[in-house]
Design a protein around this nucleic acid. Structure first.
Lengths: 333, 333
DNA sequence: TTGAAAGCGCTAACAC
DNA sequence: GTGTTAGCGCTTTCAA
């Protein structure tokens, strides 16, 4: 039943080596031979055994997707975009999702699982410590960071600093000065982390506008809705003159809206809220946001790894655009 | 640099066969030998080459996830749950996502991509034609259908008929009789499709309550928000005495809410809306729903395939519970 | 342009 | 208990 390369060879009256060459489109195969081989292959329904190909060639035609979650907006969209691009290219997607339980500790990534399994790796939406980055490099395969990554690595992302700055400027332009900020994580694994850059953007905007910073206006929400909720509670319990909030992700912004609604605070009449991401459901609730195209990021990243695998020089830093979507949750003070 | 099994064998002073046995925990290895081998392996940082293992053993320690989307609520949650369970079991997840463009045509699934690549397969949230089901069986690996599947196959799902019936009954109990229904797809690939069962549940509830069915109250929305929107428009343009709507997915319900808001119809004062799924953002907008635990479905399905792989007999049909979450979008007429 | 043959790194009989 | 020896199904020199 399982038809192998020598079945094809026999049927086509050539050697297995020739079958291998012919089917992979290598040069130095007479066109008539190639045709004969291809016909035999199709007729017998031959498909190479992946593990045999990998073992013999050292290539797996598989790209790993390293991600802390798959159900979050950013990650699921990047993964979907990447998957589709990989499928088109004839590559497989190996999904490595691991629970990122809390702020501080996370299970060490077991690289043995990746080793010799993938031709390349996409690191999707996660901040890695320099040690982890170094470890990943020992895999010896092309790496592309999606969402954020070390400056000296190949990456696809939006300009987090500029994006957060634009979000804050949008509120400043509306006359707000007491602007709360819900960041990602308080701890700072590395300088290039999304949360660091966005926090920087927030501060840059305030400074440029001559508005004093106030630590009481800042809290952290781990990029998730529940965190946005607790972060909002923190700020509103501490300060009572906040008129606007910028959340570093739409999911956290949803949490802010939760709290505001529970407290009977109207949006945008009493408080303006702006998020970052462009979550599809943001417009249902009327959340103004700075949108990025996560799907596109994933597809672009795949393009990059594949280029790196074939050795073609690539752009090392793809910065994608964000777009302000005004959907009603912000207004002049 | 790449350390192989014979490096370990040499270091431990045994043969490669013994290393293989010892490291895999097979019996008939002296405990002291096993220890020595394990130490050598750890010290050398040895990890078996996956493709070599696969080629020699015929097993891949990989489970395929076949899914039309990854960014939708149901799918991303099932995938995440499955991934985590697989990681714990030491299995890899190969993600096969393909665009399900429209109702009728979809690209034929290329099984060659799956063949000899996976030890088992999860079919996540998709209705397959009998032909496709048959094709999948030719893979010769355990199959588990998540969300819905042929009655004679192993599957993990909620009781769609009962779930939709309960949703409808909830509205009936509130006194509604002109109840719209937004289903999945109009076409019916197979009798066991989610959309068929949920439509049946809707009708069952009406019949049991003695409420006449009205085709004008029914439309289809492909389980997505945009479809829920167009479906709602269809119904409300056709009939003007609708007081409630049951949508077969929360994402479609969101679309219904879109339309209602645009038209200035208040929810639940003028129209009640209920969905199915338990989408996390449903409570932000106050959507009453019948919730299922998609994460759990994924994990359970992984448990099943793994059992099937090891040959242990399994429950063939796991039916998971749904829970009514009243969040404000329904009220007495 | 094609073929022969030597691996790729492991597992699994079978013998000891 | 442990070692020997064939493969698993391809790719890839090296010759021809």
């Amino acid at each position: 039943m399982p038809v192998g390369i020598d079945d094809v060879a026999r049927a086509a009256g050539v050697s297995t080596a020739t079958v291998s060459r012919a089917l992979r489109g290598l040069p130095d195969v007479r066109e008539s031979t190639r045709l004969r081989v291809e016909q035999a292959a199709v007729q017998l329904g031959y498909a190479p055994t992946p593990s045999a190909v990998s073992l013999a060639s050292g290539r797996t035609r598989t790209i790993g997707l390293l991600t802390p979650w798959v159900s979050r907006w950013f990650h699921s969209n990047v993964i979907e975009g990447a998957c589709q691009a990989l499928r088109v290219a004839g590559f497989d997607a190996l999904l490595y999702s691991f629970q990122l339980d809390d702020d501080a500790a996370r299970e060490p990534i077991n690289l043995d699982v990746l080793r010799r399994r993938v031709d390349g790796l996409l690191v999707v939406g996660m901040t890695m410590t320099p040690t982890e980055v170094h470890l990943l490099e020992t895999l010896g395969v092309p790496l592309v960071y999606v969402g954020s990554g070390p400056p000296d690595q190949v990456r696809v992302h939006v300009d987090d600093t500029v994006t957060a700055r634009r979000a804050t400027e949008h509120l400043l332009a509306l006359g707000h000065t007491r602007i709360g900020h819900i960041g990602g994580y308080r701890t700072q694994p590395t300088a290039w982390a999304t949360e660091i850059c966005r926090a920087q953007g927030y501060r840059d905007a305030l400074r440029a506008a001559g508005v004093p910073e106030d630590p009481a206006l800042v809290s952290y929400g781990r990029f998730e809705r529940a965190g946005g909720r607790s972060g909002a509670v923190e700020i509103f319990d501490r300060v009572d003159d906040v008129t606007a909030v910028v959340a570093d992700s739409d999911e956290m912004a949803f949490g802010v809206l939760d709290v505001l609604r529970e407290r009977g605070v109207r949006v945008p009449e009493d408080v303006s809220v702006i998020g970052i991401d462009g979550h599809e459901l943001g417009d249902l609730i009327g959340l103004t946001t700075l949108a990025q195209d996560a799907h596109e990021l994933g597809a672009t990243a795949v393009g990059l790894v594949l280029e790196m695998i074939t050795g073609t020089p690539v752009v090392r830093d793809v910065v994608c655009a964000t777009e302000l979507l005004e959907r009603g949750s912000t207004r002049p003070i």
